[in-house]
Amino acid sequence: MSPARILSRQALAGLARDRSVLILVAFFAAMVLVTAWLGWSATATVNAIYADAAAYLSGAGQPVPPNPVSTSAPLAVLRNLGVYISLIGAFGAIVIGQHLVEADRRAGTLPLIGAGPFARRDIALGKMRALVTATAAMMAVAGVIALGTLLTLPSLVVTGPDLGRLALFLLAGWAYVTTFGFLALGAAARLPATAAGLIAATVVWLVITFVLPELTANLHPTAAINPVTTLAATPDAGVFHLFSALLGPVSLAEGFAWLSGDLLGFLPEGLAPRGLVPPALALSVALVLSGLFAAQAATRLDLNAGGPDA
């Protein structure tokens, strides 16, 4: 077994035994279930309202429009999933990323690892591999629950292409959360003070989620976490068009929201993504860049620092 794989397995075993990581993953799974329930509730409520309204309209001799639920894409019931991935999933990845460095630092095992017969590169690769696996596991949990929801809701007809789009959506979600996980891993490796990596990565995430959408589209923070209101057109003012073009590629939360809307079928017709770079490309580039940052920082990690009160 390669050193990177040994280190990765050890790190994953550590993650699986850390209570705060487990609680966050359970919280994420619970919220994905809530998404399922919200999807069911939304469908059932609109169906009931439609039945009431249809009875009134036919009684009044007026034409009855089609049920809005039947005209929307089946995957749209999962629209909240994108929001929870970008909130809880990203934060979970940040916690995992910082834990991969902090746990060794606090346990005082960094010098022991550093004295092992392998290259610094292997240490970085081992940690990154553990992160990538852990975030993939989170997305797998989300995928299983999402699939269960789609198959349980009787009014939905899910086709093969729909499942393909769901898989692509989960892949985009994985890329999005892993980007923040890499950031946290790199920040924790660079900043030795306790929780400094966690706080630094959280600040970046906050700016991307709540500040950039204000600059690109005058989207207030609460609108930025609503799957429907976040998909708003850029206001018709020169400044917003300029910011949208400049910041669009780094406004990853908006990019992920746009991709979610596109893949799950609730994107308003004709809504263009912010900036000229397609969101899928922007997310991929962000993942690669954050991965490089994590690799560089973890390779240069100070292996002498550590101990319970580090």
Partner: peptide, 23 residues
């Protein structure tokens, strides 16, 4: 707050459910 907002029937259909049904 986001759940409460999302559960609002009028936020479940773009443009509002009642407006779309012309009730």
């Amino acid at each position: 707050p986001q759940i409460g907002d999302t559960m609002d029937p009028d936020n479940q259909v773009a443009g509002g459910v009642f407006a779309q049904l012309s009730v």
